[in-house]
């Protein structure tokens, strides 16, 4: 995946003396490709990717998604416990959790729609409205903030030509602020769809955006 040299490939590599490739640091070489049916049931709940290509009209829980959903149900003593994984699956294919998706999940898990709405709105990772192909989340919490996170956020807004939380006109980007992403020693940390980009400085922002536009970071991210 990573052949062209890229100063900030999204890992802690360029701060220290790593001589590993980006894939090795991220673990991509070990993880391999993602089984669409969810793999072993013990980990079926762990593949709610943020896909770049989102389709709000995709039917929910059919085909491979049905397989994953059913595997997930086997791992908990109650049906309700599958709620968070089910919402994540809905978001994966549709890009956000619409009221219709909530109703469908409620029906499948035998819960009331109001209950599912109450849970969905509690969690920040469920997008309540459509977002761009690349959801850019810039951590501005303390450790990143001390090292210039606000400038990184400003650079993302400038180079995507968007306002905070608004989708860019071409539908490519939505930029939001994030709370601590647990990568505080590698500031500024930015999560773009499913991936972490670490040690991001304002100077690198245009390069990251170009890379995303060119699709160099893989179709999934």
């Amino acid at each position: 995946m990573s052949d062209a040299p890229f100063k900030n490939p999204g890992w802690a590599g360029n701060t220290g003396e790593f001589d590993l490739t980006e894939d090795e640091v991220r673990g991509d070489d070990f993880v391999g490709s993602r089984p669409s049916g969810g793999g072993h049931p013990s980990v079926s709940a762990t593949y709610p990717y943020m896909l770049a290509e989102k389709n709000p009209d995709t039917p929910l829980f059919e085909g491979a998604y049905k397989e994953r959903f059913e595997k997930i149900l086997t791992r908990y003593p109650t049906k309700q416990a599958a709620l968070l994984p089910a919402l994540a699956l809905a978001q994966e294919i549709r890009g956000y959790v619409s009221p219709q998706s909530m109703d469908r999940v409620a029906e499948l898990l035998e819960l009331s729609s109001a209950y599912v709405r109450g849970v969905t709105t509690f969690y920040t990772m469920y997008n309540k409205a459509p977002v761009g192909r690349h959801l850019v989340q810039v951590c501005t919490n303390i450790s990143c903030n001390l090292c210039g996170a606000e400038d990184v956020l400003a650079a993302f807004l400038r180079y995507t030509d968007t306002e905070l939380g608004e989708m860019s006109e071409d539908g490519n980007f939505t930029v939001i602020e994030a709370e601590c992403l647990a990568a505080c020693g590698f500031p500024t940390c930015v999560q773009i769809n499913s991936r972490y980009y670490e040690n991001v400085t304002p100077a690198e922002v245009p390069k990251i955006i170009e890379r995303l536009k060119a699709g160099a970071a893989g179709g999934d991210v």
């Binding site: 049931p41 013990s42 980990v43 709940a45 762990t46 709610p48 791992r75 908990y76 109650t78 309700q80 416990a81 599958a82 709620l83 968070l84 994984p85 919402l87 994540a88 898990l109 819960l111 109450g118 849970v119 509690f122 969690y123 920040t124 990772m125 469920y126 709370e179």
Partner: peptide, 28 residues
């Protein structure tokens, strides 16, 4: 058996009983 579960973005789910509620499919 071991099952890996994913949260959905809420610091409070790190609190032990918040985590339990969240695992059960409730608000954390």
């Amino acid at each position: 058996d071991i099952t890996v579960h994913l949260g959905a973005g809420a610091y409070i789910c790190g609190e032990e009983t918040g985590l339990m509620n969240s695992l059960e499919g409730q608000r954390g």
